[in-house]
Design a protein around this nucleic acid. Structure first.
Lengths: 149, 149
DNA sequence: CTATTTCGCTAGTTTAGCTAGCGAATTATC
DNA sequence: GATAATTCGCTAGCTAAACTAGCGAAATAG
């Protein structure tokens, strides 16, 4: 019983350390790319959304980042001025906009994230296929538990 | 070969989702406790350091949070004013200080973190002992890889 | 013993959030 | 079909929390 609890605590401890490490990685990436954390989170969201073939509206960004639509407008100004994205008309709703990443932005993003990604892949490849399944499912369930969205 | 890569990507995808979820949890905790992210990160660091029996100086906090010592001073002012910590003289270096959490602060922290912790423990308890070992070791190695400190 | 470094602090500036409120477009109600 | 209500993104103005520069006190090096 005691050893069971200890093993749980070890996992949670490692989870906290990982969260810290991710924070720091994001912090360093922000410094390198000369942008703040929110703007970088927006970039990450857009990369992910484009990967899965979805379009992103300013409203989506506001919801995801939990900032006001007003602050989102200013953020989009920054990201547009720095050449990271473009505002485009929404195809069906003439009130709305969609935002799309520029090729330059994606290049910059992966140029800075690529090295991390490679090292993270390596660590993951050390796992067996079964272990990857266990880990991926655990991480997903944990994410879902922590923030059901 | 293809399925191997897919399984890696699934893990990394879940990892990103988890990072997002932790961010959101911390954001919500900050809102609930009416404090900003940096101050909350400071609190988390101090809880952790006290757990492992170490003392914390303003300088330690500045390094960990990657903010200037000037900003750290102001942050300590905030945390002291809100009754979260006390500045104490450093036992051996009369220039320096150490900062300690108040009992009230620890109570508040765990009152807000407790529910999350319980749910996270549950998810972890669904794993077998072997799986916990695999997960904990993976998370630790990943954290170490991402940010060797 | 003097010079340099380290510690935390204050003062003033900048950045990036916030709320309030606007016009334009859409959707619901009569 | 007219009009009322809602939704969308934006601007203006305010505030919080970071930053840099520079200070005095204490510690350490030459």
């Amino acid at each position: 019983m005691n050893s069971r609890d200890d093993s749980v605590i070890e996992v949670l401890y490692a989870l906290r350390a990982l969260g810290d490490a991710l924070d720091r990685m994001h912090g360093a990436m922000g410094d390198d790319m000369d942008m703040n954390q929110t703007d970088l989170r927006a970039l990450r969201m857009m990369v992910e959304r484009e990967r899965s073939g979805e379009v992103v509206s300013p409203h989506d960004l506001a919801r995801h980042l939990r900032i006001s639509t007003a602050s989102t407008s200013k953020m989009l100004d920054r990201l547009e001025a720095s050449g990271h994205l473009e505002r485009r008309p929404h195809p069906s709703d003439r009130r709305a906009r969609i935002v799309v990443l520029t090729p330059h932005s994606k290049q910059t993003f992966f140029a800075h994230f690529g090295a991390h990604l490679a090292r993270m892949s390596e660590v993951t490849r050390d796992l067996s296929l079964d272990e990857r399944r266990v880990v991926a499912s655990f991480l997903s369930r944990m994410a879902e538990t922590i923030d059901p969205r």
